[in-house]
C-alpha cells in the first residue's frame, strides 16, 4: 500500500490525487497530497508511474500497512524505478527502456518448451 509521500520532492501537482483509481489521496491545505484513505489502496503502483517527481513510495504489502524509513528509501534508488522501467516521460525513446511487452507470449512459449 502507499506508505510515503516525499515532501521535499513533491511539486504539489495533484496528479496522484487525480489518477489514483481508488481515490486514496486528498490535497492537503499546504498543497501536499495526504494519504487519506490508505485502506482503499490496491497496491497497483500506478501513482508512482504517474509521479514525475518520483515522490511516492508504495510498499509491496497489500494486506497491511508497514513502517517505512524515508531516509533509507530515498537512498535505495527504488523511487522512480517503475516509471523508468516503463520508459515514461524523460525515459521515452531510450532503447534501454523500450516497451518489450509484445514478447510476453515468448515467456509462455519458452516455459512450455522447458
Amino acid at each position: 500500500m502507499i506508505e510515503l509521500v516525499v515532501d521535499d520532492r513533491c511539486t504539489r501537482c495533484d496528479t496522484c490525487v487525480q489518477v489514483c483509481p481508488t481515490n486514496v489521496f486528498e490535497r492537503g491545505t499546504d498543497g501536499l497530497p495526504l494519504i487519506a484513505r490508505q485502506e482503499d489502496c490496491q497496491t497497483c503502483f500506478l501513482c508512482e508511474l504517474y509521479c514525475q517527481a518520483d515522490a511516492l513510495y508504495v510498499a509491496p504489502n497489500c494486506d497491511e500497512p508497514v513502517a517505512v524509513d524515508a531516509a533509507s528509501i530515498m537512498a535505495s534508488g527504488l523511487l522512480g524505478q517503475f516509471r523508468r522501467d516503463s520508459g515514461w516521460n524523460e525515459w521515452e525513446g531510450d532503447p534501454a527502456h523500450a516497451n518489450l511487452h509484445w514478447r510476453m507470449g515468448e515467456l509462455f512459449a519458452r516455459a512450455r518448451a522447458g
Binding site: P60, L78, N99, L100, L107, R110
Partner: peptide, 25 residues
C-alpha cells in the same frame, strides 16, 4: 529459477511491475 537468463534481463521491459515487490523486499 527456470526462467532463462536472456528473459530475466529484459523482464523489466516486458512486465515492469512484477519485480517491484521482490526488489523492495
Amino acid at each position: 529459477a527456470r526462467m532463462p537468463a536472456d528473459l530475466r534481463a529484459i523482464l523489466p521491459q516486458i512486465q515492469p511491475a512484477i519485480l517491484l515487490p521482490f526488489q523492495r523486499q
